[in-house]
Amino acid sequence: MNIFRLSGDVCHLVAIIILFLKIWRSKSCAGISGKSQLLFALVFTTRYLDLFTAFISIYNTVMKVVFLVLAYATVSLIYFRFRKSYDSESDSFRVEFLLVPVAGLSFLENYSFTPLEILWTFSIYLESVAILPQLFMITKTGEAESITTHYLFFLGLYRTLYLANWVWRYHEEGFFDQIAVVSGVVQTIFYCDFFYLYFTRVLRGSGKMTLP
């Protein structure tokens, strides 16, 4: 464990909590892509199946459980409790265009052709594109509430810190997880455009992020 990975995991947890609390307190999921949250729940489900087969550490186990619980709780807020505020009209990204290539690639490019390993690989590839419905929804509506942008900022920060974590682990341990790194770089690139808008608009105190 290193400071980059630990702070990355903390940023990830903060992002998920920001989103959950925003929906819970505002009793609305307006502007939130339910599809992205479904994809994230699927990412955690397919990645954390080893909860029952491989014990890494207390931290690892606790964080996996917390991420799973919060992911499903957020999805249930969007699709059940506050479903009247769910804007399915704007959340129109065709997720099948993500799931099919990601599933195909996870069968082609993996470390070993076993069910657990293919599901892990699927979750890695899926995570890199899971935010796209949310980013698409923001471009469609042309705006995002500032709390939603803070959620995206912390998600992007978690991914950026993971890149630093991999540099550190390669330098310190000779650790290099090619599938995770390539997929992680692609995922972080998707946030670059958002980061630009975030730093030039939201942090200028304009409150809401409106796209040009």
Binding site: D9, D50, I56, S57, M63, F67, S112, D177
Partner: peptide, 10 residues
């Protein structure tokens, strides 16, 4: 190289 079975990252 990585031990593929040991995915110790979240």
């Amino acid at each position: 190289s990585i031990d593929p079975a040991r995915h110790d990252e979240l």
